[in-house]
Amino acid sequence: MTDLTLDPAKQPRRKAGVPFVDHWCRAKGCDRWGSFGIGRGLWFCADHLAAGRMILERVPVPQKQDEKQAQGRLI
């Protein structure tokens, strides 16, 4: 188990007029750049990447409605 806590205030943000997204490490208390993106909107520095992957494995990824309906059908 990991003691990593995600900081909700560190959501990736796009600033007006800037062609890139600011994505800092989502670990609470860390002020390093989130170089490694996993999942949707989860960015971590190298020190917190392994713990971030463990969190992602525990959280189910929601499926889009179209994907739910397409499962099990032969086309």
Rank of each mutant, 00 (worst) to 15 (best):
C45E: 08
G39H: 09
A9Q: 06
P19D: 12
L4G: 07
P60Y: 08
V59K: 04
G41K: 02
L42Q: 11
I55C: 09
L74P: 00
H48G: 04
G41V: 05
G29A: 13
A27S: 10
M1S: 12
W24S: 11
K28A: 12
R13Y: 02
C30H: 07
Q69A: 10
L42G: 07
Q63K: 13
D3A: 12
K68I: 15
D31F: 13
R14D: 05
M54N: 11
F36G: 00
M1A: 10
R53Y: 01
D7N: 15
I75V: 11
R14Y: 07
L56F: 07
K28R: 14
P8A: 12
H48F: 03
P12F: 02
R58M: 07
L56I: 05
V21G: 00
P62M: 02
F20H: 02
R73F: 07
A46L: 06
Q65C: 10
P60M: 04
I38R: 10
W24R: 06
A51N: 08
P60H: 11
G17Y: 02
Q11I: 03
V61K: 14
W33E: 14
M1Y: 03
V59W: 03
D22A: 03
Q69G: 00
D31P: 00
Q63E: 15
E67P: 00
L42F: 15
A46M: 02
D31K: 12
A9L: 05
R14K: 15
A27I: 00
L56N: 13
V21P: 00
L74K: 09
G39K: 09
I55V: 15
F36Y: 12
F44N: 05
G37H: 11
Q71A: 15
V18L: 03
A9E: 14
G39T: 04
R32A: 13
L6E: 14
M1H: 08
G72F: 04
F44L: 15
A27E: 14
G72N: 03
L4M: 15
D22P: 01
T5H: 01
M54Y: 09
V18P: 00
Q11D: 11
K10N: 01
T2V: 13
K68W: 04
F36K: 09
H48E: 02
Q69D: 10
A16Q: 11
D22V: 12
V18F: 10
M1L: 06
C45S: 10
L49K: 12
Q65A: 15
W33P: 03
T2K: 08
D66H: 10
E67F: 02
W43S: 14
K10I: 00
G37P: 01
H23L: 06
W33S: 10
D47I: 09
L74F: 08
H48S: 04
Q65R: 15
R40F: 07
F36V: 09
W24G: 07
R26S: 07
P19A: 12
C45K: 08
F36R: 11
R26K: 10
F44T: 12
